[in-house]
């Protein structure tokens, strides 16, 4: 998976799961290829900014710490996401601030107390070979550089864009609260009308628990099921799915789609989590509680119902054939 460059990072321990991610491969949905990309995009972007990388640079997304990487050359790095203890060689380091790891030193990230995903950006970005224009691993499609294993060697690219001049970013990762449920805002639709009237109430008053079979495809949620309206089938013809969609399979238990969600699906989507709340969704770990709050469409987000087409548009009247 190297692109003919001298490797700089040597993976000693990948922890539970360590993968290469960038901003993904949008635009290929018609071919059945999803976007993938960093699950907590906010933390990912911050890590790249802290080391002066370009937006498109690839970083490591890792789950619940346990990461150990030896650097063969001195490099500037930054860690963001679920904060945990960090050591570069014998020195303590911190999240949300760039620092140097010297040649031969091992960078170790411990298990975070809260949150799920961390990001390690290295100045220059990871130089693994892109697939379909992206260095992201798509766990559902099996496209991109596969999960890192002990012994993997990673080169760096030249994806920097300025100098790292920020000492520390005064931000916090989107983390679930110390106690109680995380709250995610939801825009109802596109298929809210397929559910019983009581189902929406139930969705918005209940607490759901993130279950252990959650992954980058989606958060599987345990809690009160959301029944279909009387006489409405639990399935519908397949339609396109978005990140943040709350899809409800026949069990009635919603799945919140994350970065590696299927491109199309045949179960109705009761609502979609706001883009701004997706980083928090990506930081929820099994056992965490989550609540959903309905939100009205912001100006410019709405629709629903027929829109008169201008003369000349004939989507219901073929011009030919």
């Amino acid at each position: 998976m190297t692109a003919g460059r001298e490797p700089v990072l040597e993976v000693l321990e990948p922890g539970l799961l360590a993968i290469v991610q960038d901003l993904g491969r949008p635009g290929l949905g018609a071919m059945g290829v999803g976007r993938a990309g960093a699950a907590d995009e906010g933390s990912f972007r911050l890590a790249n900014r802290l080391v002066g990388n370009a937006e498109l640079a690839a970083a490591i997304e890792f789950v619940l710490g346990g990461l150990a990487i030896r650097f063969r050359r001195t490099a500037t790095v930054a860690l963001t996401g679920a904060p945990a203890d960090v050591r570069a060689g014998e020195r303590a380091a911190a999240f949300n601030a760039p620092f140097s790891v010297r040649a031969g030193e091992v960078l170790r990230v411990a298990r975070p107390a809260r949150g799920l995903r961390g990001y390690l950006a290295v100045r220059g970005g990871l130089g693994v070979t892109p697939v379909l224009g992206s260095r992201s691993w798509d766990s559902l499609a099996g496209i991109g550089p596969p999960p890192l294993r002990a012994g993997d060697l990673l080169p760096l690219a030249d994806d920097h864009d300025g100098e790292p001049f920020v000492d520390v970013a005064p931000v916090r990762a989107p983390l679930p609260p110390l106690s109680g449920a995380a709250t995610l805002r939801v825009l109802p639709g596109p298929r809210a009308d397929r559910f019983a009237a009581s189902a929406l109430d139930r969705l918005f008053v209940s607490a759901y628990e993130v279950t252990a079979d959650s992954d980058r495809v989606g958060l599987r949620l345990a809690g009160p099921p959301l029944p279909a309206a009387p006489g409405v089938a639990a399935e519908l013809p397949p339609e396109g799915m978005v990140t943040g969609a709350l899809q409800v399979p026949p069990s009635g238990r919603p799945v919140l789609f994350l970065a590696d969600h299927p491109v199309t699906g045949g179960y109705p989507v009761v609502g979609v989590v706001l883009t701004a709340d997706l980083p928090l969704a990506a930081q929820l770990r099994p056992g965490d509680e989550v609540r959903f709050r309905p939100t009205a469409p912001a100006a410019g987000v709405g629709g629903g119902g027929p829109v008169a087409a201008a003369s000349g548009a004939r989507w219901r009247r073929p011009l030919r054939g």
């Binding site: 943040g244 706001l274 987000v301 027929p306």
Partner: peptide
Amino acid sequence: SELHVLPCGDHA
């Protein structure tokens, strides 16, 4: 002639 548009979150 008409289009039937359903809301699908804030980016679709």
